[in-house]
Design a protein around this nucleic acid. Structure first.
Length: 271
DNA sequence: ATAATCACCTGCTCGC
DNA sequence: TGCGAGCAGGTGATTA
């Protein structure tokens, strides 16, 4: 599920419900996530009030003043607001009970996600320190992509998905952005011109902001924090369309593997 | 430093 | 209907 638009959708869905509320209790039913949920996390969070809910890359940060909770949703995680007595479903791993009869519930079938404690809040945590700029900020540009890609031989798609270059571009949106920019995913990153990287940066911004505006992409059963599904999947132009005609020129889209990830492109439009 | 592979998990779909 | 193979939104760790 979660690339940047899905995490942002979750943040927007959840934040209004929990901001300003005091945490009464944290129940960890299954600590074995990607990294174990720290044993001292519940005690550190209980009694604190949620100051704000922010996002860095695909991490969701719940600021509690003197410390901060850091969620990652991995491949299959989601956060939702439920009433306190709502029966637990399979793979509901953590409940955060807040005053006002609100529970924030974390579910993650594959357990690739995590819940960690930043004490105190810091951008210098090992998971956050090496992240590139936010794609929707002014720090991100075609010039940046061009500069960082010189001498690099790996495929431009792999380069674009490197979170040290720019954060938040996962497999779906990498495919979509390269399609919009007319760049073949296999092209060595160091061979792409500045002009084409500017088109790619524009495409990344467009694809991500469109997806956020539509509530994220729902594959299988993603729902945002408000429980509503995303609708962006109805507008996917490349991802998942291997073998089908290009929407621009009708040429059959090709599907290949790049770094173990499905990559779809139009052999005619993307060079 | 860069690039390729592995690993962590469960669930679903496909082909036999 | 059952069963194994392969694949899925991510990304840190480990190899060359």
């Amino acid at each position: 599920m979660p690339e940047l638009p899905e995490v942002e959708t979750t943040r927007r869905g959840v934040a209004p419900h929990i901001t300003g509320r005091k945490i009464l209790k944290v129940n960890v039913y299954e600590p074995r996530l990607r990294w174990p949920v720290p044993a001292d996390l519940p005690a550190a969070a209980e009694g604190k009030t949620v100051q704000d809910v922010t996002r860095r890359a695909k991490y969701l940060l719940i600021n509690l003043g003197e410390n901060e909770l850091l969620f990652h949703l991995g491949m299959s995680g989601n956060l939702r607001i439920v009433a306190p007595e709502t029966p637990r479903m399979k793979h509901d791993h953590v409940d955060i009970l807040l005053e006002g009869d609100i529970t924030l519930r974390y579910n993650d079938p594959r357990r690739f996600g995590c819940l960690l404690l930043l004490n105190p809040p810091t951008q210098e945590h090992p998971l956050l320190r090496h992240l590139g700029p936010e794609p929707l900020s002014d720090q991100f540009s075609g010039e940046l992509l061009y500069k960082l890609s010189r001498q690099r031989k790996s495929p431009v798609k792999t380069f674009l998905m490197d979170q040290a270059i720019v954060v938040g571009v996962g497999n779906i949106y990498a495919n979509e952005a390269l399609f919009l920019a007319g760049i073949r995913p296999t092209r060595p990153a160091g061979e792409v011109s500045l002009k084409r990287y500017q088109a790619l940066a524009d495409a990344v911004r467009k694809v991500l902001s469109d997806a956020i505006n539509m509530g994220g992409t729902t594959l299988r059963d993603f729902v945002g924090g408000d429980g509503k599904p995303g609708y962006f999947q109805q507008t996917l132009r490349a991802y998942g369309r291997g073998g089908q005609p290009c929407i621009l020129c009708k040429t059959e889209l090709k599907e290949i593997k790049l770094g173990q990830r499905a990559s779809v492109f139009c052999p005619s439009c993307q060079r």
